[in-house]
Design a protein around this nucleic acid. Sequence first.
DNA 1: CTGAAAGCGCTTACAG
DNA 2: CTGAAAGCGCTTACAG
Lengths: 357, 357
Amino acid sequence: MNPGTDPDSDRVRRPNGGRSSNVTMRDVAELADVSIATVSLVVNNKKRERIGEETRARVLEAVAELGYRPNALAQSLVSGQSPFIGMVADAIASLPFAGQILRGAQEEAWRNGYVLLVADTDHAPDITAEAIKMMIDHQAVGVLFSTWYHREVQAPPLLASLPAVFVNCIPQTPEAVSVVPDEVQGGRLATDMLLDRGHTRVAFINSTEEAPSTVGRLAGYRKALAARGIAFDPDLVLPIFPERVDGFQEAGYEAGNELLARTERPTAVFCYNDRVAMGLYEAVKEHGLTIPGDMAVIGFDDQEVIAAHLRPTLTTIALPHYEIGARSVRALLNRVEGAERGHVQRVDCPAVVRTSI
Amino acid sequence: MNPGTDPDSDRVRRPNGGRSSNVTMRDVAELADVSIATVSLVVNNKKRERIGEETRARVLEAVAELGYRPNALAQSLVSGQSPFIGMVADAIASLPFAGQILRGAQEEAWRNGYVLLVADTDHAPDITAEAIKMMIDHQAVGVLFSTWYHREVQAPPLLASLPAVFVNCIPQTPEAVSVVPDEVQGGRLATDMLLDRGHTRVAFINSTEEAPSTVGRLAGYRKALAARGIAFDPDLVLPIFPERVDGFQEAGYEAGNELLARTERPTAVFCYNDRVAMGLYEAVKEHGLTIPGDMAVIGFDDQEVIAAHLRPTLTTIALPHYEIGARSVRALLNRVEGAERGHVQRVDCPAVVRTSI
DNA sequence: CTGAAAGCGCTTACAG
DNA sequence: CTGAAAGCGCTTACAG
């Protein structure tokens, strides 16, 4: 701390904007009276054996006194290793879902020494392109391209220029790697749970968009039936058109009414999602019937606001968003390392048992 | 493109990990046969007048041919200006709300040439600290500290070391700058809308936590009454304890039953939030009454899944999350510039009219 | 009109 | 055991 010999004034201090945080390795070196190379070594705890105990202590003391923290940007520059993983999502804002993916991705990224650079594109192609460019410019090792609901997508052309993994979506490109929920398994699980409780006439209110969720869940429903030797009855699957009636709840309500008007009513119904179930509840109640007594119902998605607070609370199948997020960064990192060839990874959807079945 | 004179092999190419993207300014310079300084000038479109047309064209061509993009990290290093704004949120995952804040913040950040570094802490103090450190290490110009519901917070100590703005929350520190929703205005608006429709006995089902939302909305409710010369009747505000009954819906249901059992029923009710309204709907229906005929109801939050799809659809007051996010980065940037002294900025909550009043 | 040089904050062989 | 030097990919005075 020899202030007398410290040629502090000779040094050009912060000729840059001045916006930079402050104390650099050079400051530490001067205070500890060692070279910056030495500071680097002790700060990074490298080649421990080569640094004298006394010196190391002096450096550490200086670091503490100045509150020094290495500039991560400079470190990246020299190491050539970016600390960033990009994540471009079409709608973090719309649903809690995307947030869970983000969380899973973030934690797995941190665990591996990476940091997430996120962008919400709101489906705008130009924003998507801008976001990807931004990520490339910041040297992201790769990007997670994520959608808030499971679907097929057109991969943005820019994505070809760096490692990418598709999260909750599947592009046409065969070499792509995707991580998505296992819709078939989920549909089967939902149906099995109803069947397990002795129901044999199980209806399925399914949506009509051509999507992995609609076809997958239906396939799962049929598998469950087949496994028990129950014949598939087309009359028991009710198609809904949420876009025509302004929402899933509305569609579920109508489908429910149709179901309840039948002479031979199903005793249980598997709903395409919790919103549909919410509408169905409404119909059942208007008919003076009770759930699950007169009709058992199971949903899909585990959308907390609805599922946990309907009367009765809704048993449902959860979408494994957190896990999908986490696995996506693992897949991306593998891909960066050169491992991980194109394929889609399906993650199990767990049941959340409440009181509607 | 003189390959003969290009001493390519003399240059040490990418002695780093090899992870780095690829083409550098040096590559462009060689291809265009100019110095890297020149490349820099044309790429950044600086000192235009000083670059010959012919040269500029040659450089641009090389840039295009190689697909060169500047390394943003290196640029930051030399300019001393970070492109990052940190955003630490306690729960992006839980609700759609936080996502809207993120979106608003992101767009405003991009507009100003910044990029968001986001971290979801799930309320864990150690993760919060780690996140802030990470942001400091990456030279973020400042951080947005955001909570998913409006409340008072204890500012993390680390936040003292760089410019910060509190988003959707208010710390005790007086010099802090906060951006929050205007609860009083919102409460008043909700009540006014009911009053405007001729109701005079307007109940308010309010939550009991000591929070800006509960006290603010109540204040707004009273103001609206006072402005019309309607005496405040304490019996008309029903306290609920959502944590005791496992949810707002459940609490709203119970409060609804209590209200409906009264001999002199209110004709309209302002609910603390949409979830409470959802529970109230249930109670009203069980009593064989209709909304808004027998009872008008207005909510708060505009939680899409609920508000837009209840039967009848719910009129409610929206939380201006997007705007809060956008204003927060404006405030942060001002703070970085040295302007913006400590204060709290309240953003108006707009009404979303549907069919329940 | 253009290039050489210094420098941003670091790390890593290479000497000694 | 420790320091000087080169270099990461850029930008910006300063010469010419």
